[in-house]
């Protein structure tokens, strides 16, 4: 492998890692509370609220049904406001975050819903407030499922990040298109694909291991 190719791969890998990890962190910070609200407001849950549930649910679904490549272009004005530019790795973080947030919200909502109702009942019998039930019971008990879901989200985001080249976001996907496809560099294409496969494997097995550890069986 030539020195030049190695440098290119290293730089692109770094861009992908930055894009995905920053977007994942922000999307988790936004998606977890959103998932908690969706769960609590759902019919038959802690604080059922049909209007809140319907409006939030509709926004989440709308975002999730927009193809990422379109979302990315459609969000360019917003990206400019937030980052100051619509080109580059930081700019790609904005659409990635917005695509991942509703995904994570649904994951968290489902994970919380799967917590045994008996535990909620036990906490209520102890005089827990709805907030205490969320913080002390629902979130810790759903942590293994949430970690498994976040792993899923991270893998999906690695896939999305490959499209970030469309806004000049860089990353491995961009490298594969620019060198592997447009310049017929089969070696770059192969190396990129190999790195992506390894990266996804690493994320998946790391996530699985963590989820297993958190289960305390």
């Amino acid at each position: 492998m030539s020195h030049e190719l190695f440098a290119l791969l290293a730089e692109s890998l770094q861009q992908t890692l930055i894009m995905v990890s920053v977007a994942l962190a922000i999307a988790t910070a936004l998606g977890v509370p959103l998932g908690v609200i969706l769960n609590a407001a759902a019919p038959g849950q802690l604080l059922p609220n049909a209007p809140v549930y319907r409006v939030l649910g509709a926004i989440v679904n709308a975002t999730r049904s927009t193809p990422f490549i379109i979302l990315m272009v459609a969000l360019i004005p917003l990206t400019r406001i937030i980052v100051g530019t619509s080109i580059g790795t930081p700019a790609a973080v904005v659409p990635l975050t917005i695509a991942a947030t509703p995904f994570i919200a649904r994951i968290v909502e489902a994970a919380l819903r799967d917590v045994d109702r008996g535990l909620v009942e036990a906490a209520q019998a102890m005089g827990a407030t709805p907030w205490q039930i969320v913080v002390k019971v629902l979130l810790p008990e759903s942590l293994p499922a949430t970690v498994a879901g976040l792993t899923l989200a991270a893998v999906a985001m690695i896939g999305y990040s490959a499209m970030a080249g469309a806004v000049g976001g860089g990353g491995l996907g961009d490298l594969a298109i620019r060198y592997g496809y447009e310049r017929f560099r089969a070696d770059v294409m192969a190396a990129t694909v190999a790195i992506l496969i390894a990266l996804v494997q690493l994320v998946q097995s790391g996530g699985d291991a963590l989820a297993r550890r958190l289960k305390h069986t």
Binding site: M126, P140, L143
Partner: peptide
Amino acid sequence: ARREIGMVFQHFNLLAS
């Protein structure tokens, strides 16, 4: 008032975490 009333359940309802 509920804190004055302890409750034990058929399926224990312990937190796995």
